[in-house]
């Protein structure tokens, strides 16, 4: 990257940082809410989900970027969907083969990555206009932002909801787990307050 001109490096750096905070898909753009809420009862499934999304995002961005000059405008969305669905199927098979427990825990939320708006939004906004390398950087940055947001949310819910972190007991024995946080209600409340916190931080900074 450094061999390119300064402007070029700047673009890559900006893209890389955008996904983590400024344009964080979950915390700032509110994309991909369904897995964010559904798989964050514990950190391990949340992390696995994040990795699946990174995989699908990178593959589909590469594919879309490769065929960006051949795309017919009215068939664009169909092509994106087809690409994403293919890579989600592959991710699902990989998960079933190498992480069977996680595959069972995530259940239908793995195929639901197909309709995760993050991936189609990145294909449309970035990969269909930019060369491969920038598309990959963009995919990695957005994927990392998504994974981090999921893990933060899952961390809060797992520690308070079960007293464990990554399946290891971290809270003292006397701590009574807030079971509600492991239930659907916990997902909504934690994400609601987390978004509130993000809004508060953003406001203080500006």
């Amino acid at each position: 990257m450094a061999t390119d001109s300064d402007g070029q490096t700047c673009v890559y750096k900006n893209t890389l940082l955008a996904g983590l905070w400024r344009e964080n898909p979950v915390l700032r753009l509110l994309l991909g809410m369904c897995p964010t809420l559904a798989v964050t009862a514990a950190v391990k499934p949340a992390f696995t989900m994040g990795m699946c999304v990174v995989f699908v995002l990178v593959c589909s961005n590469v594919m879309v970027s490769l065929m960006r000059n051949m795309l017919k405008p009215h068939l664009r969305i169909l092509m994106f969907t087809l690409t994403i669905a293919t890579f989600v199927t592959i991710a699902d098979l990989l998960l079933k083969a190498f992480q069977p427990d996680m595959s069972a825990a995530l259940g239908p939320y793995v195929p639901l990555i197909i309709v995760n708006c993050i991936i189609i939004a990145r294909a449309e906004a970035c990969a269909s206009k930019n060369p491969i390398l920038l598309s990959i950087v963009d995919a990695l940055s957005m994927g990392a932002g998504f994974t981090v947001a999921l893990c933060v949310l899952a961390g809060i819910r797992e520690v308070l909801g079960t007293g464990k972190f990554f399946d290891i007991q971290v809270m003292p024995k006397a701590f009574v787990p807030w079971a509600a946080l492991s239930m659907p209600v916990g997902a909504f409340l934690t994400l609601g307050f987390l978004l509130g916190l993000v809004a508060l931080i953003t406001k203080k900074r500006s």
């Binding site: 609601g192 307050f193 978004l195 509130g196 809004a199 508060l200 406001k203």
Partner: peptide
Amino acid sequence: PECLQGAPITLI
């Protein structure tokens, strides 16, 4: 509260 307006309060 201002920071909870919009999506956060909807989620809660």
